[in-house]
Amino acid sequence: MTEYKLVVVGAGGVGKSALTIQLIQNHFVDEYDPTIEDSYRKQVVIDGETCLLDILDTAGQEEYSAMRDQYMRTGEGFLCVFAINNTKSFEDIHHYREQIKRVKDSEDVPMVLVGNKCDLPSRTVDTKQAQDLARSYGIPFIETSAKTRQGVDDAFYTLVREIRKHKEKMSKDGKKKKKKSKTKCVIM
């Protein structure tokens, strides 16, 4: 069974824990209790493949930012979460993405942009803004509501699919490099 290491990042209060708990335990946590770091595991079937999701729910508070490099190193894919009623959390996505790329030393890291709290009427981040940002990053965008469960499975499952595509691409690139290195030079 394939294991996928997913990391949920975003500013404090955007609903990272609520999304994760909704996926794992099928219930909505409405009281806000700032996370330092929590880890969850769940076995699911995605596109006919049974897999184990190892999900790291991270601290959004700035005082825990020193811990970010460590979990970013171990993560295979990242859910970059903002709240649709919090423009600052949307603007912060850029910083999370840049930090992930720096730590992973790669421009090509599996990510999904997630606009959470889409059940709320007080939207300050337009869907088109988020779609445009995701398009500019070359990553999928999904709106979710941890409260109603809308888009929750889709967000995590899409990230797994992005990781699969990335692994497939990397193995193809690896095979191309191996083929090239088999060419021999004969000096007579």
Rank of each mutant, 00 (worst) to 15 (best):
L113F: 11
M111S: 02
V186I: 15
Q25C: 15
E76H: 05
R164P: 02
V125S: 07
V7R: 01
K5A: 04
K101Y: 14
R161S: 13
N26S: 13
K128V: 04
G48A: 07
L52T: 15
L52E: 15
Q22G: 08
A59Q: 03
M170C: 07
C185H: 11
L133H: 14
K175D: 10
F78Y: 09
Y64T: 11
R68I: 15
F156L: 05
K182R: 04
G151V: 14
V186C: 13
T127W: 05
M67R: 04
R161A: 02
Q61I: 06
D119N: 13
I21C: 03
L23M: 13
D154L: 05
A155M: 15
D173M: 05
S181A: 10
V44T: 07
H94A: 14
A155Y: 15
K176H: 09
T158A: 12
T124K: 09
F141A: 03
A18I: 03
L133W: 10
Y64K: 12
N86W: 01
R102D: 12
D38F: 00
T87R: 09
L56K: 01
Y32V: 02
L53Q: 03
S181Q: 10
T20A: 05
L19K: 14
H27M: 15
D173F: 15
K167S: 05
D132Y: 05
K104Y: 14
L79G: 00
K165D: 04
L56P: 00
C80T: 03
V29Y: 14
M188Q: 10
K184F: 01
A130D: 11
Y96G: 02
V125L: 06
K176M: 13
G48Y: 06
M111D: 01
V152Q: 14
T74H: 12
R73Y: 13
V7N: 14
D57M: 00
V186P: 15
D153K: 06
K101S: 13
D132M: 05
G48K: 10
D173N: 12
D119R: 14
P121F: 08
G10S: 14
G13K: 05
P110I: 02
A11N: 10
V109Q: 06
S136C: 08
E107K: 10
P110F: 02
F141G: 03
N86E: 09
C118S: 09
D57Q: 00
